[in-house]
Design a protein around this nucleic acid. Structure first.
Length: 453
RNA sequence: GGGGUCGUAGGGUAGCCUGGUCCAUCCUUCAUGCUUGGGGUGCAUGAGACCUGAGUUCAAAUCUCAGCGACCCCA
């Protein structure tokens, strides 16, 4: 973490991206952009939202009004209409959607933006996870003709997010949030969670079906094929720098950062092993570095005069996926020594074939990181038969337990355990057989519970 | 929401209880030179700090109050 953010900024909940961390952010967000750009357009809406728009949707207001920052003055003059710093952009975007949407031919609209948002968090703030300025909020807002199309888009959103996280080698669980935990103003919320090393889950993506709730308050209507005015149906879905919190925490180890090659600011470090002065070895090292750079790899040649061991620690801490060492022994064999950050394995590879040797390992590393993280997550999903058992084991991971789906039962479960219900996960994880621990009704739904960030 | 602990160089700390011995300790870091070189080389020299404000006092890193900030526990 010390490499990524500077936590010394003198305002609570605001942090500074170091250039190194920003580099990781840039490469991470390039992936989400790549995935979204296939089917979305990127746009940019204002940071300031007039109170008159912000206060239109009752549920939405209830959900956010306690954490809104207000701009009340322009210079010394008090503003007639206060301006909110967006806590999220529905109320900035939807007045424009009202203007933009006229006919069924205008639909669907799929727009995203990557912006900062502000929330006056009263709980403990932490870098990348709970912020007063979310610096990297990727929010998408879509408009559709029908509820069903919007529902499909929510599915598409969670699919995109899972693909995104797979690229980062982060395993995820997708579940439908319980009704009491959905986005304010939504019909329902799908959430993407992952499990952190301390056994708490981190919500790293959400997708909300807004129905026509916002369309009604913001008067977003289209003329259908029959010439009738219809309310539009909407979705929104978001990802933040929590994705980077997960990236760092899940792969990192006691030696420091570990990055999948795709997002690593430095992918290869070349370290010469010198005895006395050796032009020959330095030359071989810079040749290798140049060769890799020509292939577009991000390479550093560390020819500083620290001892090799000191360099190893330094670059390991920075999460460089591969280290290439060249010493007299290697040179004699026309070879290099390649050390992997993810597995610490030390291998000898032929110098002539260096590019392929490196590329092959990049792919292995991403795969290995994902497999490792996935099995670590799976090992910490604990099947439980009773609430007592959940309570006992919840600090060891994610508890899986039957739940009838009723609100009263769910709230009672959360109360009894002192942890949240994430929801009923998609796929096998959410399917099973048993009895709800509260009402004892038979059910095929398995809920997951966890301590959350 | 409630309770608690804390703030000393870039990072980690000693000193605070019992005010003066402190132009503030040690480790790390950084700079320079020599030395060294397949997992944190050694030596020398040097650089760098008492969160902010008010108060008590002859005297404040140390005591009091407030602000800002950090961390922990409980709901």
């Amino acid at each position: 973490m010390g490499e990524i953010m500077d936590v010394r900024y003198p305002v609570k909940g605001l942090y500074v991206w170091f250039p190194f961390g920003f580099d990781v952010r840039k490469r991470t967000y390039a992936i989400i952009r790549e995935l979204l750009d296939k089917d979305h357009k990127e746009a940019l809406f204002p940071l300031l939202i007039p109170e008159t728009e912000f206060m239109k949707e009752a549920e939405h207001i209830k959900g956010f009004e306690n954490e809104v920052y207000w701009v009340t003055h322009g210079g010394k003059n008090e503003l007639d209409v206060k301006l909110a710093l967006r806590p999220t952009s529905e109320t900035a975007i939807y007045p424009m959607y009202k203007v933009w949407v006229r006919s069924h031919a205008d639909l669907p609209i799929k727009i995203y933006q990557i912006v900062n948002t502000f929330r006056y968090e009263t709980k403990h703030t932490r870098p990348l996870i709970r912020l007063r300025e979310i610096t990297s909020f990727k929010e998408a807002h879509t408009v559709h003709a029908t509820w069903e199309e919007a529902a499909k888009q929510v599915e598409e959103a969670t699919r995109i997010y899972q693909e995104f996280y797979r690229r980062l080698a982060i395993p995820t669980i997708v579940s439908k949030r319980p009704d009491w935990d959905k986005f304010p103003g939504a019909d329902y919320t799908m959430a993407v969670d992952t499990l952190m090393p301390d056994n708490k889950t981190l919500q790293i993506g959400t997708a909300h079906h807004l129905g026509s709730n916002f369309a009604k308050t913001f008067d977003i209507k289209y003329e259908d094929l029959n010439g009738e005015q219809q309310y539009a149906h909407q979705t929104c879905y978001g990802i933040s720098e929590r994705s980077i919190a997960a990236l760092i925490s899940i792969h990192g180890d006691d030696k420091g950062l570990v990055f999948p090659p795709e997002v690593a600011p430095i992918q290869v470090v070349v370290i010469p092993i010198l005895f006395g002065k050796s032009e020959e070895i330095l030359k071989a090292c810079s040749d290798v570095a140049d060769k890799l750079k020509d292939k577009g790899m991000r390479v550093v040649l560390d020819d500083s005069d620290e001892r090799p061991g000191a360099k190893y620690y330094k670059w390991e801490m920075k999460g460089v996926p591969l280290r290439v060492e060249i010493g007299p022994r290697d040179l004699k064999n026309n070879a290099v020594t390649i050390v992997r950050r993810d597995s610490a394995s030390k291998e000898t590879a032929p110098l002539d074939n260096i590019i392929e040797e490196i590329q092959k390992r990049f792919e292995d590393i991403r795969e290995n990181l994902f497999v490792k993280a996935k099995s670590s997550l799976n090992e910490r999903i604990i099947n439980c038969g009773s609430l007592e058992e959940v309570k006992e084991k919840i600090s060891n991971g994610i508890a899986r337990i039957p739940w009838c789906g009723e609100r009263e039962c769910g709230l009672a479960m959360e109360e009894a355990v002192g942890a949240g219900i994430l929801g009923v996960p998609e796929g096998e994880l959410g399917e099973g057989a048993g009895n709800c621990p509260v009402c004892n009704k038979e059910t095929g739904n398995m809920a997951i519970m966890a301590k959350t960030y």
